[in-house]
């Protein structure tokens, strides 16, 4: 058996020798044919968009290999900042610490937002009392040592039934963003809720519990509209329901978060990476919608490409400016 195994391994290995050489020669001679590999890692939230772009891109450029990992935003940044990948998918802006690590390794990065994810707050369809929630009420419910035990604790008119909470676990970028927006500090939340890394578990949980309240990415609500009821959120300007339109035009605030690509300047010099980024920004709006996210306004993609072309490094989304209520286009124009 071992001989057969060995033979079956050698044959593809030999085939590689031939194929690999001829592939490189073609690229060198014609000059127009793109080759090489685009190495991408990072957030599993952004993964479906990047996968879709990679799929389409490789149909156009057969010689280019696009590989995408899902080490998570933080795990991906570790690789990205030590120069192991060309692009990092990120569901949150880069952190100071990570930017420092990149600088240490001489890696410059260009920050490009590619889509929105609207964090949806949902309840069971049988819940007929919740018409909307304000950000202050959400804070009341989710803050550490929250006094809220029953629905009546949120608003006196609501029933005296225990409120059952569902949310992503602490490793999730959705958790980071939600806690930062609602509780004012990332990773700070009441701990007594049903936490899962798998959003499908949260969907099932809320769908089967009349007293449940949960939050997760918009795509998981959009796929389960018949089993869940989405709660309009009042961020100060009246209740707004999460939908493609309200997330795209920025009215579903403050629970819309941008998703990013971080492109290394060194990788960006290679023609295949450059082409890939260009293709990504041209098609992200359509492809993001296809996999359940919301595209950015067209102007944001133009500004993103300009950023890349002019080699503008550094982050604007991890600064205070990003929290000052400016729209994504305004932020990119800074």
């Amino acid at each position: 058996m071992r001989k057969i195994l060995l033979a079956s391994l050698l044959i593809p290995a030999l085939a590689l020798g031939g194929a690999g050489c001829s592939g490189k020669k073609d690229a060198g001679e014609s000059g127009t044919q793109l080759g090489g590999t685009v190495h991408i890692d990072g957030s599993s939230t952004v993964f479906p968009i990047t996968e879709a772009v990679g799929e389409e891109f490789q149909m156009l450029h057969r010689g280019v290999r696009v590989t995408v990992g899902i080490s998570g935003t933080g795990g991906g940044f570790k690789k990205f900042c030590s120069g192991e990948t060309d692009i990092n998918d990120a569901s949150r802006p880069i952190k100071e610490k990570e930017a420092l690590l990149a600088a240490e390794h001489g890696i410059g990065f260009i920050e490009i937002p590619v889509a929105f994810d609207g964090i949806s707050v949902v309840v069971n369809p049988a819940n007929d009392w919740v018409d909307h929630l304000t950000v202050a009420e959400l804070h009341q419910i989710w803050m550490p040592d929250s006094p809220v035990k029953t629905w009546r604790d949120v608003r006196p008119a609501w029933p005296d039934r225990e409120i059952k909470l569902y949310g992503p676990d602490v490793d999730s970028g959705t958790f980071d963003y939600f806690t930062e927006t609602i509780n004012g500090e990332s990773q700070v939340s009441r701990p007594d809720y049903t936490a899962s890394a798998d959003d499908n578990v949260l969907v099932t949980g809320v769908a089967g519990d009349r007293d449940a309240l949960g939050y997760f990415g918009y795509a998981y609500y959009a796929e389960n509209t018949d089993r869940l009821k989405v709660v309009p959120i009042d961020g100060g300007g009246g209740p707004v329901t999460a939908s493609h339109t309200t997330i795209n035009n920025g009215t579903y605030a403050p629970l819309s978060r941008p998703l990013f690509l971080y492109v290394s300047t060194k990788g960006g010099e290679r023609p295949e990476v450059r082409e890939f980024v260009k293709f990504y920004l041209q098609n992200a709006a359509t492809l993001a919608a296809e996999v359940g996210y919301v595209g950015l306004p067209a102007r944001a993609y133009e500004l993103g490409w300009q950023r890349f072309e002019s080699g503008k490094t550094g982050s604007i989304f991890n600064t205070d400016k990003a929290r000052s209520g400016l729209s994504i286009v305004e932020l990119l124009s800074l």
Partner: peptide, 15 residues
């Protein structure tokens, strides 16, 4: 996942 095996690969390993 720890060693960074990929999730999206549209080619077959040749070596």
């Amino acid at each position: 996942i720890m060693i960074g095996a990929l999730s999206y690969v549209a080619f077959v390993p040749e070596g």
